[in-house]
């Protein structure tokens, strides 16, 4: 018998699947890219919660999420929630796949292709607003939301910059990146010099023991 109540998992997946298909519908530029992956099934096992989910890309406009799948999977990945979060948000998914704790079986190409389709998705949030509220009202609300979003992004990056400057330059809580890199280089250089000296000492000791043996 399954550990989780299948009804609970199915309900959650039904909601996610609906949102995913809605997002795909609102991103027409992704349809051709997804169509290229049609028929691909990807399996994901989240070890943190002991849950396996399959993503079946039915067509360029529809995907299905399942907890049970008997179709052959192009790729099967296994990892923790944190691993998958870093993979989803990474600009270099191949590096994350290699360096993180994610285990991969099958073809990584289809997984990376899907991650790139998702990262390139350009969702037209204005379309449902216009369809519901009409052209004028929908567009105005969308513009307001866009400007709020832009302001939020700008405020976020400005805040990050200012915090970084305060921590590094004013409070001197951590050393600057360049200083830290110089220190690491110096440590590495010292480590190599110590290794060389140790090698020379070993050689000298070997020579001394050899001469003692001859005497």
């Amino acid at each position: 018998m399954t550990q989780h109540d299948p009804a609970l998992i199915s309900a959650a997946l039904a909601g996610i699947e609906r949102a995913l298909n809605q997002a795909i519908a609102l991103s027409p530029t992704s349809h051709d890219e997804l169509a290229g992956l049609a028929g691909t099934v990807l399996g994901v096992e989240v070890t943190t919660v002991d849950l396996t989910v399959y993503l079946d890309i039915i067509s360029g406009t529809e995907a299905r999420l399942m907890t049970h799948c008997e179709l052959p999977t192009a790729a099967f990945v296994r990892g923790t929630v944190e691993d998958f979060a870093s993979l989803a948000s990474s600009k270099d998914p191949a590096a994350v796949l290699i360096n993180s704790g994610i285990e991969l079986e099958g073809n990584s190409g289809s997984l990376i292709a899907l991650q790139q389709v998702i990262s390139r998705m350009d969702i037209d949030w204005e379309a449902p607003l216009v369809a519901t509220l009409g052209d004028v009202m929908g567009h105005q609300i969308a513009e307001t939301l866009r400007s709020m979003f832009r302001w939020g992004e700008s405020a976020h990056s400005s805040l990050r910059r200012q915090i970084s400057e305060f921590v590094l330059e004013e409070a001197r809580l951590t050393p600057p990146k360049a200083e830290l890199e110089y220190f690491f280089d110096a440590v590495q250089s010292l480590s190599m010099q110590v290794d060389r000296v140790q090698n020379k000492l070993e050689k000298l000791r070997a020579k001394v023991e050899q001469k003692r043996g001859q005497a």
Partner: peptide, 10 residues
């Protein structure tokens, strides 16, 4: 609908 969804999966 959820019960039937799982039936279709299985």
């Amino acid at each position: 609908r959820i019960w039937k969804r799982f039936t279709i999966e299985l």
